[in-house]
Amino acid sequence: MASLVSPPGWPAQVRPPDAPDWERSAADWLLDITPPEYRSYPTLRRHVVVLARFAVLHVEAAQLACRRGLSEARAELREVAEPDVVEVAVQTWHQESARLLAQRRAVGLVEEALRGRRFVARL
């Protein structure tokens, strides 16, 4: 029996590729990280690899928005918030950027596995 391997960055909520119900766990997770409206599209619910592509693009769009928010935070917020609040907002953008970076890796790995890639354990 082949060993089930999940690479570093694989989402904890998704079973390893080829485990029983792994694609169902992938679909559930992908639906959880994308806009709720995605649940209403039959194609996305029936074709998990298509859902994965939508999820990748959704996360990448969030990354772009995060970069924009970070680049504009000080200029846009200085008129409406105290300097310490602005700095906390900047730190929040940094935290969100890190979270999205990890999520982009995870969703990319799931998409690759849904497209047939299998991972091997490294020593």
Rank of each mutant, 00 (worst) to 15 (best):
P16K: 03
D32W: 05
R53N: 11
V49P: 00
A19W: 02
P17M: 01
V59S: 00
G69N: 03
W22V: 04
L70Q: 05
W29E: 06
R53A: 15
R53S: 14
P42G: 09
D18M: 08
V56L: 06
R68W: 12
V48I: 07
R68P: 09
F54S: 07
T43W: 13
I33M: 03
V48K: 00
V50W: 02
A27R: 14
A27Y: 01
E23I: 08
S25I: 04
D32R: 03
G9R: 02
V50D: 07
Y41W: 14
A27V: 11
A65S: 14
R39T: 14
D28G: 11
V80G: 12
R67Y: 09
Q13K: 13
R74D: 09
P8M: 09
P8T: 12
R78T: 10
V49N: 06
Q63A: 09
P17W: 01
R24D: 15
E23G: 01
Q63S: 07
L77E: 06
R68T: 15
P8A: 12
P7C: 06
Q63I: 11
T43Y: 15
A55T: 11
D18I: 03
G69Q: 00
A27S: 14
H47A: 10
D32N: 09
E79D: 13
Q13Y: 11
R46C: 06
V56I: 08
L77N: 07
A52T: 01
F54I: 12
F54C: 09
A81T: 04
P8E: 12
W29H: 07
R78S: 08
A27I: 08
Y41L: 13
P7S: 08
P35A: 15
P35V: 14
D28Q: 13
H58A: 13
E23K: 06
L51E: 02
D32S: 15
R39G: 10
L77M: 10
R67E: 12
V59W: 00
W10Q: 03
Y38T: 12
S71D: 10
Q13D: 15
P11W: 00
V14E: 02
L4V: 10
A12R: 10
R78L: 05
E60W: 02
E60L: 11
L4P: 06
P36F: 13
E60H: 04
S25K: 02
V56M: 04
V49Q: 05
V80S: 14
V50N: 05
R39L: 12
V14H: 02
D18H: 06
S6L: 04
D21G: 13
A55C: 06
R68H: 13
V48N: 00
L70D: 05
A55L: 04
P16C: 03
Y41T: 13
V50S: 07
P35G: 14
Y41P: 03
S40W: 15
L77P: 02
R68F: 14
R53Y: 11
V59C: 01
P35C: 11
W10N: 02
A65C: 12
W29L: 05
W22L: 03
V50A: 10
E60P: 01
R78G: 03
A52F: 00
V48T: 10
V5Q: 02
E76F: 06
P36L: 13
R46S: 11
Y41Q: 14
W10D: 01
A61V: 04
P42S: 11
R46F: 07
D28F: 14
L31M: 09
V49I: 05
W10P: 01
R39K: 15
P20K: 06
A62Y: 03
A81S: 07
V56H: 00
V48Q: 01
S40R: 13
V59G: 00
A62R: 11
V48R: 00
